[in-house]
Simulated assay, not measured.
Amino acid sequence: MLNGGRGGADGPAVPMSPRELAESAVAAVAAGAGEVLVHPRTPCGRESLSPRVVGPVLEELRGAGVRVPLAVPADVAEEPDPGARIERVRSWTVLPERATVRFAEPGAREVAQALLARGVAVDAVVPLGGGAGPEPLARFLEWAAPDRGRSGWWRSRPTRRRSPGCAGCRRCGSCCSGGRAPRGRRCGWPRGAAPMRGSA
């Protein structure tokens, strides 16, 4: 993560402009980062899902030679309306490889489906315990049912667990990437996914 929820008020070391973010991304990849999560911001420091903000950031990073997958958040606080978020995703002219979706928020399922429809993989953030209640997990499980998951690729984070479709395998990433679970039984989770669970 290059900047996260930090803005210009948090100090000059926080990258804000597309060029600063690209420089930070290049340094992170050189240090071993295999993926870059960036929060695109307007010139005044406001997070945004606008294609006029997201596109230039992604283009700057790729133009600087960043070749690892790029991810952006699809649930910025400054744009709380789920319908507006979906329209933003549909209007993107430059696409990231991944986008994070917080299933604690209303409309997360619809936003996730809009991302998959654009070919953007989903990193599902599902809070467990504390004051989260059962709704985020229920919302995620309904969305990630096998019959829906076949339309795209999702990944929740950060702790791995065994998927219901696995017949006792120790690492879901093996069978869920298209192999077979023990005793020849096909895993029931979406192809290419590594089912996990974790807190935001």
Results as ranks from 00 to 15, higher is better:
Gly4Arg: 11
Ala9Asp: 13
Asp10Leu: 08
Pro15Ala: 07
Met16Leu: 15
Pro18Gln: 09
Glu20Lys: 05
Leu21Met: 14
Leu21Ala: 11
Ala22Lys: 01
Glu23His: 03
Ser24Ala: 15
Ala25Arg: 03
Val29Gly: 03
Ala30Gly: 13
Gly32Pro: 03
Val38Leu: 12
His39Leu: 12
Pro40Gln: 06
Pro40Ala: 09
Thr42Gly: 10
Thr42Arg: 15
Cys44Phe: 14
Cys44Asn: 15
Gly45Arg: 06
Arg46Thr: 15
Glu47Phe: 08
Ser50Cys: 09
Pro51Phe: 03
Arg52Gly: 08
Val53Gln: 08
Gly55Lys: 02
Gly55Trp: 00
Leu58Lys: 05
Leu58Asn: 03
Glu60Pro: 04
Leu61Asn: 00
Gly65Glu: 06
Gly65Val: 05
Val66Tyr: 02
Val68Trp: 02
Leu70Gln: 02
Ala71His: 03
Ala71Pro: 00
Val72Asn: 00
Asp75Arg: 00
Asp75Glu: 07
Ala77Thr: 11
Glu79Arg: 10
Pro80Asn: 08
Asp81Ala: 10
Pro82Cys: 10
Arg85Trp: 08
Arg85Pro: 00
Arg85Ile: 05
Arg90Leu: 12
Thr93Asn: 07
Thr93Glu: 12
Leu95Val: 02
Thr100Tyr: 01
Thr100Asn: 04
Val101Pro: 00
Phe103Cys: 01
Glu105Ser: 09
Pro106Ile: 08
Ala108Glu: 03
Arg109Ala: 15
Arg109Ser: 14
Glu110Leu: 01
Gln113Cys: 02
Ala114Cys: 08
Ala114Met: 03
Ala114Thr: 04
Leu116Met: 13
Ala117Arg: 10
Ala117Gly: 11
Arg118Tyr: 04
Asp123Asn: 14
Val126Lys: 02
Pro127Gln: 06
Gly131His: 11
Pro134His: 10
Glu135Ala: 15
Pro136Gln: 06
Leu137Gly: 03
Arg139Asp: 12
Phe140Glu: 05
Leu141Pro: 05
Gly149Val: 07
Gly149His: 03
Arg155His: 14
Ser156Glu: 11
Pro158Ser: 12
Pro158Glu: 07
Thr159Asp: 13
Arg161Ala: 14
Pro164Gln: 10
Cys166Tyr: 04
Cys172Ala: 15
Ser174Leu: 15
Ser177Gly: 15
Gly178Cys: 10
Gly178Met: 07
Gly179Tyr: 08
Gly179Ser: 14
Arg180Ser: 14
Arg185Ile: 13
Arg186Val: 14
Cys187Gly: 12
Cys187Glu: 05
Cys187Phe: 06
Gly188Thr: 14
Pro190Asp: 05
Gly192Arg: 09
Gly192Glu: 06
Ala193Met: 06
Pro195Lys: 08
Pro195Ser: 10
Pro195Leu: 10
Pro195Trp: 07
Pro195Glu: 09
Arg197Thr: 13
